[in-house]
Amino acid sequence: MLSLLCAFSVLPLNIFLPTLPSIAADFHADYGLISLSIAGYAAVSAILELTMGPLSDRFGRRPIALTCLVVFVAGSIGCALATNIQVFLAFRVLQATITSCYPVSMAMIKDTAGKDQAASRIGYAAMAAALAPMLGPTLGGVIDEAWGWRAIFWSLGLAGTALFALCWFTLDETNKNRSSTIRQQLEAYPTLLRAPRFWAYGLCMAFSTGTFYAFLAGAPLAAKVVFDIPPAMLGFYMGTVTAGFVVGSFVSGRYARGYPLTVTMIAGRIVACAGPLIGLVILFTGARHPVAFFGPCILIGLGNGLTNPSAFAGALSVRPNLAGSASGLAGSMMILGGAALSSMTGAVLTEANAAYATLCMMLLAAVIGLIAAFYVLLLDRREALA
């Protein structure tokens, strides 16, 4: 159930991407204005990650998940019925509430499992969440061709209603130690931010995600100017990194419970560092085949799939009574880390350095994530000696 919630929380982000030109034409709107349906969605998602997690600590996980689904369904129906771009964007913002189901699901996993077992379960949930955006654009394109772009939002509304019914009958409340006041929740973030261990886990996740976003920012330009890859093939090459994440998440889910969190975190970061490093070595030898660039980048996805479930489980275990707040704050750190690395990569990219600069930025982010993972190991050893 929680894996399904995680998958559905990320599906609406990109399922409608193939239809953006159709939506722009239908509303006679500028394409740049239509793109706000992505940027605005992401911005609202980051804010909601910070608020819904603490609210789930105060009022319970189940009511927050159900409320998010209700608002999402309303937003989906509003998008389907929109008569102009302003109304469409307003209801698109309401759709962003579904993203809060991800941190709430992570908190529910932590509520029902120990630290090591939580890493394993989070690995499986992350695998489901990675599969959804891989399949989403294809599914959206098929629906658009058959029934038009509005059918995508009708389908999301119908799916959200079905998920609400499923959660209503099968999803039990897992937060047995709710905080007594909202003030207590407002004090949660300073408590977490004063914990060095939470910073270590959070920064490890942020820079792991940032490595992938650096790839997203630089790979399209490198594909065009260095490797002359046609757009149809670019989607395939970029999808291999997400496929690597799915594999890494599966391995984490299968084996993480047998090892300390730091083992899988450090192993994942080492694998992720190896990807851009190998790519740089190959490019310096003069190779100009797309596989020379995209092949090693698969290790980025594999390493992130190994690292993030354990790091997320660790972040939630710093203050178990604040699992919802920790989940929301960690999720926001991941979003902000991705946005920062994407912007930094875009700032240094030129047509002349596209491949090298992208790999260097990826390597920088991966190394910082590795340092954060080693800092967790240092904290573990200090506690063992204390």
Rank of each mutant, 00 (worst) to 15 (best):
S9I: 01
S9D: 10
L11N: 11
N14V: 13
S22P: 00
D26P: 02
D30F: 02
Y41R: 08
L55P: 01
S56R: 06
F59I: 10
L66A: 01
T67W: 12
V70K: 02
F72T: 11
V73T: 13
A74D: 08
A74G: 14
L94N: 10
Y102L: 15
M108N: 06
I109P: 03
K110R: 15
D111P: 04
D111C: 09
D111E: 07
G114S: 10
Q117P: 00
Q117D: 14
Q117C: 00
A118S: 15
Y124R: 10
A128V: 09
W149P: 02
L156A: 12
G157R: 04
A165Y: 12
L166M: 14
E173D: 07
S180W: 00
R183H: 13
P190W: 10
L192C: 06
L192T: 06
F198A: 01
F207G: 01
G210R: 05
A214M: 04
A214I: 05
P220N: 09
K224I: 13
F227H: 02
D228G: 08
I229G: 00
I229K: 00
P230E: 13
P231D: 15
Y237C: 12
Y237M: 15
T240L: 15
V247W: 03
G248W: 03
G248R: 04
S249I: 11
S252V: 09
R257P: 00
R257D: 13
Y259W: 12
P260H: 04
A267R: 07
A274I: 11
I278W: 03
L280K: 04
F284A: 15
G286F: 04
H289S: 14
A292E: 05
A292Y: 03
F293R: 07
P296N: 11
L299A: 10
L302F: 14
N304F: 11
S317N: 14
V318Y: 03
P320W: 02
N321T: 10
L322E: 10
S327L: 06
S342F: 11
A347L: 09
L349M: 11
E351W: 00
E351R: 12
A357L: 10
L363W: 04
A373Q: 03
V376R: 01
L378R: 15
A384P: 04
